[in-house]
Write a protein that binds this DNA or RNA. Structure first.
Length: 261
DNA sequence: AATGACTGCAACCGCGATGTC
DNA sequence: CGACATCGCGGTTGCAGTCAT
């Protein structure tokens, strides 16, 4: 279902990711963060471009990416937000915990677009004939109007599922923080709040603290280097946890090593 | 069973925005 | 202030799996 792997003229690998590549990228980003996507693949030992790494991480490897089927709530929210904002997938994704904009975009085109088209046509026909017999029509009506009045009201107006929004190409909280330079290399702070519901005020307060308030993002991303896996070289500017030998294993000419030294 | 059409989704691409020098 | 690098976003593509004939 994915493009077959191949190498372009510059020796950059493209196409489907292997499990080994996934593991390398995951291990590297989880340990060192994504301080610079363009440079990252070199240090992670990947023959990929930075853009590809970033996409793979954001869409697939991030631990807080929610996989699996969409709930009725999620579907109704996507439909609602799409009606309001159009193809602003990043905006829509920001309102769905654990979903990426790319995933939502795909889901829209493969599932929801048909439904809303169907809804439009059936709604039109309904005005002429006040009936809607198909279960799909019922489902759409449910999505757009809310499962129940109370449930819909709570969902749409007062609560959001709270975990960091995942945008396929979003800024990480670290990048968002005004206190944090991009090269400072912070790990992502994860949240296990996805199953909890909060009021709007709580959400605002949380994000205030989460993204800007605390000094979390200004702290060095790597405080414990005791368990560094030296299979994944990283710039010496991140501390002395890397070794020259492991680093040089990826740069036989040593020029980049000298540069970073 | 063969095969052509369709579907779903991971991944790619181009371009605008933003940041840095 | 312009040039360049990098990031973020949305549209598009490629292809394996599934379905229909």
């Amino acid at each position: 279902m994915v493009r077959a792997p191949f190498y372009d003229k510059n020796g950059i690998k493209k196409g489907a990711w292997s499990s080994e590549e996934d593991e390398r990228l995951r291990a590297y980003v989880e340990r060192y963060g994504h301080w610079n996507w363009r440079e990252l693949p070199k240090y992670a030992g990947l023959s990929r471009c930075g853009k590809s790494c970033r996409l793979r991480w954001m869409n697939y490897l991030r631990p807080d990416v929610k996989r699996g089927n969409y709930t009725a709530k999620e579907e109704s929210l996507i439909i609602k937000l799409h009606e309001e904002h159009g193809n602003k997938w990043s905006l829509i994704a920001a309102n769905l915990s654990g979903r990426t904009d790319n995933e939502i975009k795909n889901y829209w085109h493969t599932h929801l677009k048909k439904r809303t088209t169907h809804k439009t046509t059936t709604t039109t026909s309904q005005t002429e004939d006040q009936s809607c017999e198909s279960s799909q029509c019922d489902q759409i009506t449910s999505h757009c109007n809310g499962e129940t009045e109370a449930e819909s009201s709570n969902w749409d107006n007062n609560y959001v599922e709270l975990s960091p929004p995942i945008l396929e190409s979003s800024q990480s909280p670290a990048e968002t923080s005004p206190n944090c330079s991009e090269s400072s290399g912070l790990i992502n702070r994860t949240s296990d709040l996805s199953d909890t519901h909060y009021s709007s005020n709580q959400v605002e307060a949380f994000y205030e603290e989460y993204y800007t308030g605390s000094d979390f993002w200004t702290k060095p991303f790597l405080e414990d280097t005791s368990e560094i896996n030296h299979d994944y070289p990283y710039p010496t500017c991140f501390g002395d946890g890397g070794t020259s030998s492991s680093y040089l294993s990826f740069y036989d000419d040593g020029m980049e090593y000298i540069f970073y030294q």
